[in-house]
């Protein structure tokens, strides 16, 4: 074919240096924030915080949020929200407990039953969003309240209580505990699961065709659809992922604490979203990273436990959280504007 010459390469551009490349990663803000916050708490919280015990402590806290933040960040990159995962934690934890403790079924069977339930919740969320075109914010906000009410209502109806304990006496508990609730070298096994989730999520997002579709769906829904990306399938799949990861966290908590209550998991949806946003996910979709969300979760754990180690009243935790969120978003916005070459 014939060629057109577009003139010599543009000489007004400086070659992007390695530093600049690093700065333009979505994770950069979260990495910087994590390091700064760690240094601050290392200064105030003393030697226990810096040592291995400190690491074990805050990674255990970060793991729960971190596992959720993997699927939440993927969903956010695809341009959607899931506010219902906190309620899914409560519902699936309670459902597992009801089947295992109340009905005295094998723990693994109970876990499977609640897993199917979580999948159905995710499918329903996704289907409703895709079908009605309503913002997922509204659909999953509705699910958040409906499911929370359903959990309390059904639990009280069946057991006359709002919490269940005694999972350790149910068959299958020991093996389930080894998988979801044990410790490895003093680390919670959930930290290992968290790492697996992060690696899997990163691989899917950056190396698989599916990941390309996730970016495309969030970047421009109609544009991606016109190019043949199955945007509905992508979104429904991701809603199933978020619900299933909530179920996973619910199971780890149930097995660790040998019981659960109807309010467990409340507020986790926001913590996971905050981790994803700190990690560089754009609220409008199309941009972000799973590694960033993992750093966001780590930052979370460090602040939450650092406050305790530094013997600051833990009432201040939420204050720090709010400030951290806004600062992180401002930094990320600034970097992104630099990235797209804007000046302001």
């Amino acid at each position: 074919m014939s060629t057109v010459t577009a003139g010599p390469a543009d000489d007004r551009l400086i070659r992007r240096s390695v530093t600049r490349r690093l700065l333009s990663r979505p994770e950069f803000g979260a990495l910087l924030g994590t390091i700064i916050v760690w240094i601050v708490f290392a200064f105030y919280a003393g030697s226990v915080f810096i040592g291995l015990d400190g690491v074990r402590n805050y990674t255990a806290v970060a793991a729960d949020i971190g596992i959720l933040a993997v699927s939440v960040s993927l969903l956010m990159i695809a341009g959607e929200f899931d506010l219902s995962i906190g309620s899914v934690i409560a519902a699936t934890g309670m459902l597992t407990a009801l089947v295992a403790i109340q009905m005295q079924q094998n723990v693994w069977l109970a876990i499977a039953v609640s897993g199917v339930f979580a999948m159905l919740v995710g499918l329903f969320n996704g289907w409703l969003v895709v079908r009605t075109g309503l913002p997922s914010f509204i659909v999953t906000l509705g699910m958040m309240f409906a499911l929370a009410g359903l959990t309390i209502g059904v639990t009280r109806l069946v057991t006359d209580r709002t919490q269940l304990g005694g999972l350790e006496d149910v068959p299958g508990f020991d093996s389930a505990h080894a998988v979801f609730g044990s410790q490895i070298f003093g680390f919670n096994v959930t930290v290992v699961w968290w790492v697996i989730f992060v690696l899997g999520g990163t691989y899917a997002l950056t190396r698989l065709r599916f990941g390309n579709w996730v970016y495309g769906t969030g970047g421009n829904l109609d544009g991606a659809r016109n190019l043949g990306v199955p945007v509905n399938r992508v979104r429904i799949t991701l809603f199933v992922f978020t619900a299933m990861s909530a179920w996973f966290v619910a199971v780890t908590q149930l097995v660790t604490f040998k019981g659960t209550d109807v309010l467990r998991g409340t507020g986790k949806e926001f913590e996971a979203i905050i981790a994803a946003v700190i990690g560089g996910c754009l609220l409008t979709g199309g941009y972000g990273s799973v590694i960033g969300a993992a750093l966001g979760a780590l930052l979370f754990g460090i602040v939450k436990q650092g406050i305790i180690f530094a013997q600051i009243d833990s009432d201040w935790y939420k204050f720090f959280l709010g400030v951290m969120l806004v600062v992180a978003v401002l930094i990320n916005n600034w970097f992104r504007r630099r990235l797209l070459g804007e000046r302001k």
């Binding site: 970016y215 495309g216 970047g219 421009n220 544009g223 991606a224 016109n226 754009l282 199309g286 941009y287 797209l340």
Partner: peptide, 10 residues
């Protein structure tokens, strides 16, 4: 299509 930036952040 006329939309000039279908996937600006890709």
């Amino acid at each position: 299509f006329q939309d000039l930036a279908p996937q600006p952040l890709m």
